[in-house]
Amino acid sequence: MKKRLALFVALVATPLFGMAQQEERDDPRKALAIFAHPDDELFVAPALARAAREGDEVTLVLATSGDQGPGVSGFERGDALAAARRDEARCSAEALGLREPVFLGHGDGTLAATPRAPDSPARRLTADLAAIIAEEQPDIVVTFGPDGGYGHGDHRMVSALVTQVVQAIDDDRPSLFYPGIRKGTLPPLPQMQDWAVTAPALLTIAYRYADEDLAAARAATQCHATQFDAATRAQIADLFHATIWGGAVHFRPAFGQPR
């Protein structure tokens, strides 16, 4: 496993995508992309698409089914919306070349409630995260950083609990990576100006993607019809490509340089 982790660092840190393509690969890596809601994966979509295209086994793990996020749909909050959003997540995963998503089924908007209580949503989610990481034995885990991307409470809680589980693993601990928005790259949209940014020097890994990975990200975005209107779905991936990503999804290792 350590050989594979070292290879991962060489692949993602190289400054040229073409050079990364020429690196010798051994057996596929296993990666878990763990997020709070269907559509959170769009934040790193080209990176997931590239990893899957190059043969890695990438699984999207979602803590909730987004049952409280009506978006632009006519759904009431609840089970029907959750079912629709699970279907959208499956569509997105297929577009990105990922394995069947895992839905942990926790309540949307509940994860930060009374986290120290004996049967709190946070404690139940922690147990589920520990179980799936132990079962899958991934080489790599990706989740939001402590900022939650734009401060969403569920995003922050998933980040904290994933980190808590991974940092407690003694042997063959997976490498944990946080994506980030480089300071100075936010699009000039008023609704995005309070999104969290990271000093570029901290984002030491630029995981470059190809045109086909960006195309996969566009297709994945189209799946989330309950959350974004048609005009927005047509623009998100290209907007991020022109600003936040700039040809690479940027990450930082959670615990310093990976082993």
Rank of each mutant, 00 (worst) to 15 (best):
M157E: 14
D229E: 14
G145P: 09
A216M: 09
L202K: 14
C223P: 07
D172Y: 04
M192W: 12
H152S: 06
I205T: 04
A231R: 15
A127S: 07
I181K: 05
P174V: 15
D211Y: 05
Y209E: 05
F177L: 15
Y150H: 14
D154T: 03
A131M: 03
P179M: 14
D211N: 09
R182V: 01
T204F: 01
A220Y: 04
T198M: 02
P200K: 05
R218Q: 12
T226L: 07
D172T: 04
P187G: 08
G151F: 09
L186P: 02
R208F: 08
M157H: 00
Q193M: 14
P188K: 10
E212K: 11
G145W: 12
A206F: 08
Q191E: 12
E136S: 13
A215R: 10
A210C: 06
P187D: 08
V197E: 13
D211I: 07
D213G: 01
L186N: 07
V197I: 06
V141I: 15
A199V: 07
Q222M: 14
H224W: 09
A217P: 03
I181M: 10
V142K: 01
L161K: 02
A219N: 04
T143C: 11
P138I: 11
T163H: 12
A220N: 10
P187L: 13
A134D: 15
P187Q: 12
G148D: 13
H152T: 10
V166D: 03
T126F: 05
D213P: 02
Y178S: 01
V162T: 12
C223W: 09
T143N: 02
A201H: 07
V165I: 03
A134W: 01
D211M: 03
D154A: 01
W195C: 00
P174Q: 14
V141P: 00
P179I: 11
R218F: 00
R182E: 14
P138T: 12
T163S: 12
L176V: 01
T232S: 08
I205E: 11
L214E: 04
L214I: 03
P188E: 11
L161H: 02
E212Y: 03
T232L: 07
V197H: 05
I169H: 03
T143Q: 00
L176Y: 04
Q137D: 13
I133C: 00
Y207A: 14
L176A: 08
Y209I: 10
A216C: 08
G180M: 06
R208G: 12
D128L: 00
R218P: 02
G151P: 09
A201I: 07
A160H: 11
S175P: 01
R233Y: 11
I133V: 14
D147G: 15
H152K: 13
H224I: 08
Y207V: 06
I140Q: 01
Y178H: 15
G145L: 08
Q167L: 07
I132Y: 09
G145H: 13
V141E: 04
E212S: 11
Y207H: 15
V197W: 01
D139G: 08
Q191N: 01
G184N: 10
M192G: 06
A231E: 15
V166I: 15
T163Y: 03
